[in-house]
Amino acid sequence: MSLFRRRFLQLLMGAATVPALVGRSSSAETQRQVRVATGLLAMWQSTAWLGAEAGIFGNRQIEMSLTGVAIGGPQAAAGLIRGDYEFAHTGVLPVAEEVLKGNDIVILATPTTEFPNQFIMTRREIAELAGLAGKRVGVLSETGQTSVATRIAIEKAGAVATYAPLVRFDRIYAALAAGEIDAGVLPVDLRFVGANRYGWNAFPVYEFGTPSIFAGTRKLIASDRELVMNVMRGFVETIHLFKTRPDIVVPLLARYLNIEDRKVAADLYAFHLPVFQKSPRPSLGGLQNIRDVLVTKYATAASLTEADIADASFIEQLESEGFIDRLYRDGR
């Protein structure tokens, strides 16, 4: 067992309650209200919620509320554009498609690197993706990034399946457990649970080489850049908390993800720890894959650039100011 792992378990098991961060603001008069949505209920889209629960955004006079959780990537992007909320955790594909439609949405950060965080889970007797021919597969939506990547993976295996949009991972899990579907896409936490409990087979989904993202709008940037800058400071501080304080983070995320088994929560934290980036500068190395998917619907997708869909200036400013380096100074 590594030194980090031993220390992590000591911190976790010794934490009877989740400590509150010091200095949480109690002044409602000066708080700026900010609404956020998430496409998925997943650890890699938990940064806004975690920062709000831990008091990080409150310390910055931001009252952050999650007004839509696990509503689907396309829905999160569409709601952001409508003005239902100011920020959203979603995928690159919904953002790129909305930009190609002429809508206002922009990527501000990529909290993690790209990693296999979702899996096509099949019943025990279906040992390969080709076995899904003519079968029913549970997905989140018809057009979201995860759902499109799932369909592509199955089609590459030579199978033509039917797809049931079930909106949430927990519904996909329940439907697969009940035998209502033959397979379904699930996040890494439910991948381990399903394999252990039901003997399901797991096949990783690779989402175009682009990670999950955190987005806002150019309109908000133009009208209140300091608010966006302050949110991004809190966002980076929350990633620092995630990477350095498992005693606080693991109990919170176990509650957020409804994980009752503390060992499962600890293992999931350890799995995600290395993929969260200290500096979440927008990184879209797989953009060509996004272009290839969208060009059949939008001819202008062929010339889509990172600058069209992302604004790295906020993270770049935090880097140049030394803000991020100071957070991690002296091994904290």
Score class of each variant (00 low, 15 high):
Met1Glu: 11
Ser2Leu: 05
Leu3Lys: 00
Leu3Gly: 01
Phe4Tyr: 11
Gln10Pro: 03
Ala15Lys: 02
Thr17Ala: 12
Thr17Asp: 10
Val18Tyr: 07
Leu21Gln: 03
Val22Tyr: 06
Gly23Asp: 03
Gly23Trp: 00
Ser26Thr: 13
Ser26Phe: 07
Ser26Asn: 09
Ala28Cys: 04
Gln33Phe: 14
Arg35Met: 07
Ala37Arg: 01
Ala37Val: 08
Gly39Pro: 06
Ala42Ser: 14
Gln45Gly: 02
Leu50Pro: 06
Ala52Glu: 13
Ala54Cys: 13
Gly58His: 08
Leu66Val: 15
Gly68Phe: 07
Gly72Gln: 09
Gly73Trp: 03
Pro74Met: 08
Ala77Lys: 03
Ala78His: 09
Ala78Asn: 08
Gly83Phe: 04
Asp84Met: 06
Glu86Lys: 05
Thr90Trp: 14
Gly91Tyr: 06
Pro94Ala: 08
Glu98Ile: 04
Val99Asp: 09
Lys101Met: 14
Ile105Cys: 02
Thr110Val: 12
Thr112Pro: 04
Thr113Met: 00
Gln118Asp: 13
Arg123Lys: 15
Glu125Arg: 09
Ile126Pro: 03
Ile126His: 02
Ala127Met: 14
Glu128His: 11
Ala130His: 05
Ala130Asp: 00
Ala133Trp: 06
Leu140Tyr: 10
Thr143Arg: 04
Gly144Ile: 04
Gln145Met: 12
Thr146Val: 05
Ser147Tyr: 06
Arg151Pro: 03
Glu155Ser: 14
Glu155Gly: 14
Gly158Arg: 06
Ala161Ile: 06
Leu166Ile: 10
Phe169Ala: 15
Asp170Trp: 11
Ile172Lys: 04
Ile172Gln: 04
Ala183Thr: 01
Ala183Asn: 00
Ala183Ile: 07
Gly184Asn: 05
Val185Arg: 02
Val185Thr: 09
Val185Gly: 07
Asp189Tyr: 03
Asp189His: 01
Gly194Asp: 11
Trp200Asp: 12
Trp200Ala: 09
Phe203Leu: 10
Val205Leu: 10
Tyr206Ser: 13
Ser212Cys: 14
Ser212Gly: 15
Ile213His: 00
Ala215Ser: 13
Gly216Leu: 09
Ala222Met: 10
Leu227Tyr: 04
Val231Gly: 08
Arg233Met: 15
Gly234Phe: 00
Thr238Asp: 01
Thr238Tyr: 03
Ile239Val: 04
Lys243His: 00
Pro251Tyr: 09
Pro251Leu: 12
Pro251Gln: 13
Leu253Ile: 13
Arg255Met: 09
Arg255Asn: 14
Tyr256Val: 07
Leu257Glu: 02
Asn258Arg: 12
Asp261Trp: 10
Val264Asp: 00
Ala266Trp: 01
Tyr269Gly: 01
Ala270Leu: 01
Pro274Thr: 03
Phe276Ile: 00
Pro280Trp: 10
Arg281Asp: 02
Gly286Glu: 06
Gln288Asn: 15
Leu294Tyr: 06
Leu294Ile: 03
Ala299Ile: 05
Thr300Arg: 14
Ala301Gly: 02
Leu304Pro: 07
Ala307Thr: 06
Ala307Lys: 08
Ala307Val: 02
Ala307Ser: 08
Ile309Thr: 01
Ile309Ser: 02
Ala310His: 01
Asp311Tyr: 05
Leu318Pro: 12
Ser320Ile: 13
Arg326Leu: 11
